[in-house]
């Protein structure tokens, strides 16, 4: 509940800020990590011609467990070259996601923190409209917590992959 409240506050703040600034974009993408896939709606802010930062909310399904979950993603893109039709960038991406399974006796939370670095491109379809895609590799931290006393919470560190494909519209 607390996480949801903060999500809403951040999104509200960011959306207001974004709409006041013409250098920003709205993006819609789909992304798949080694643990789950998500729909991602978010905003990006162009800091200068080389840097762009973004924030988005995620909603999706775990790859292996048939449960839905959501979270927050933030990324930084570095464009090393001038604007062209295709612009390649270096990306770093952080995602926090939470999945929950509840039944009569079980209440299990699975939290993931993904940190990945990657490489991708923007394809300019019109002056304001872009297709973008990137791949990333990095690390993931998994935390499983159980309501039962006879099973300990589990923590895992693992390698992580990310694939993201989406559209971006410059406001």
């Amino acid at each position: 509940m607390i996480i949801r409240k903060y999500f809403l506050l951040i999104i509200f703040y960011l959306s207001g800020y974004t709409l006041l600034n013409s250098q920003n974009s709205i993006r819609v993408s789909g992304l798949s990590t080694t643990k789950a896939y998500f729909a991602d709606i978010g905003f990006s802010k162009t800091l200068n011609k080389n840097f762009e930062i973004g924030l988005g909310v995620l909603y999706g399904r775990h790859h292996s467990l048939n449960i839905k979950g959501g979270g927050l993603t933030t990324n930084v893109l570095l464009y090393p070259h001038e604007n062209k039709i295709i612009n390649f960038f270096i990306a770093s991406d952080i995602q926090f996601t939470l999945f929950n399974f509840s039944s009569d006796q079980d209440n299990i939370d699975i939290k993931y923190l993904h940190l990945v670095g990657g490489y991708g491109f923007d394809l300019k379809l019109s002056p304001n409209f872009f297709l973008f895609n990137y791949f990333g590799l990095g690390a993931t931290y998994e935390h499983r917590s159980f309501n039962q006393n006879n099973i300990k919470n589990r923590n895992h560190f693992d390698t992580a992959g990310l694939f993201k494909l989406g559209m971006k519209y410059k406001i």
Partner: peptide, 24 residues
């Protein structure tokens, strides 16, 4: 030339990504 280099680099990263042991 720079553009060709970028495309080459992009595909190189895709190959690296898909051959990484955990994602292979």
């Amino acid at each position: 030339m720079e553009f060709t280099k970028d495309i080459f680099l992009h595909f190189l990263i895709i190959i690296f990504f898909s051959s990484c042991s955990d994602l292979s």
